[in-house]
Nucleic acid binder design. Structure first.
Lengths: 198, 198
DNA sequence: TGCTTCACTGACCGGCCGTTCAGCGTGCTG
DNA sequence: CAGCACGCTGAACGGCCGGTCAGTGAAGCA
């Protein structure tokens, strides 16, 4: 049920994955603990389904952002913008996202995670790597290992989102988007002799 | 005791933070569970001390790398190299490092983490931000929020380390160092009209 | 050899939390 | 109104795990 997933997300956002108990999720949703088990087999399924519902929304946003742009630079900007915007309207989801990116929890939980959440994350990196690969082929960016570049880019920007989520009044999204996109595209070096031509 | 910390690190590397039980850490160290409590007050103290011992080594390496270099570009390269080298000889430590960077676990554990592990991580970002700030003042790099840049850089390179640690035969460190340093300094854009002058 | 010390042991305890299920109320049906 | 279906409840259960402490045995000593 919708409201159970929302409750789960809120509790996880507040307490963290490990400390979010079924009891508290039930209380947050205004039902008894047993009720959750009418809709989800166990805790893992609740968490997994909650993750999937939310991450699918993020992916749709990003896919959309990607397809509607021509040049690599514009695609990159659109992707980063979509990500920052998504997480500023879905702050609740962010902590769950962070927890499920990497394998944690008991061995049993890890097996289930491997089936669903991890592949989702991996697929997203592969997708970004593809975008990079195509941009390399078309000569828009220089050649480098696209998978590692994608990792660097995605995790770097995730770190900025972590910071934004923890701030009471984060700067406008466009500012952080500029910081990320400019750094990736142009780097941070100043070349006095070359730059004087600008 | 040394060997208890090493055992803890190995078990956490194998099973993950949440699934690493005192029982298994004791078995790994070849002692009884109760023995651990002769040297550490509780599980949290064991984990915390283990983390501190290892992270201090990493910091020493990085401090050393930083001080022995003049230009920002060389400093950056030295820092990234130190990080990659450290984690390829201390793979065991990496999973613990990942787990304690960000707050997780029960509310009680989080309080303890906040006292020791989190500040360590935060301090490292501040340190990097300082290096960036000085490079901006000296005109070596362009101006941008140094703290966010530091976050981006550190987490981006951590992501590359995650990948390296999971690979059976990662490429030589220098290759990944080049990828990271070049991306940060010069970006990934190709500017056909400008580059033709190279 | 008998006594003391002390590092170490591991069975046990208590609490926590995911999971279950007998039972309850509500509303519909005949 | 009796009978039934059904969504929901929450006390109880069981397993797990961190933490404890009475006990063990080896080593040192007189």
């Amino acid at each position: 049920m919708q409201s159970l997933q929302e409750a789960a997300m809120r509790v996880i956002a507040r307490k963290g994955m490990a400390a979010a108990t079924m009891q508290e999720i039930a209380r947050e949703a205004g039902v008894a603990k047993g009720t959750i088990y009418l809709y989800f087999r166990d805790r893992d399924e609740l968490v997994e389904k909650t993750f999937e519902t939310a991450i699918t929304q993020l992916y749709e946003r990003i896919d959309q952002a990607m397809q509607s742009q021509a040049s690599f630079a514009m695609k990159l900007r659109a992707i980063i913008t979509a990500k920052l915007e998504f997480f500023s309207t879905h702050r609740e989801f962010f902590r769950l996202y962070l927890s499920l990116r990497m394998p944690e929890g008991s061995a049993q939980q890890q097996r289930r995670q491997k089936r669903t959440c991890q592949p989702q994350y991996r697929a997203r990196i592969e997708q970004m790597a593809d975008v990079l690969r195509r941009a390399m082929d078309s000569g828009e960016i220089r050649r480098a290992d696209p998978f590692r570049l994608a990792l660097f880019l995605i995790e770097g920007s995730t770190a900025v989102v972590v910071q934004r989520v923890s701030e009471d009044a984060p700067p406008p999204e466009s500012e952080d988007v500029d910081l990320i996109v400019d750094t990736i595209l142009e780097g941070i070096s100043l070349h006095p002799q070359k730059r004087s031509a600008d």
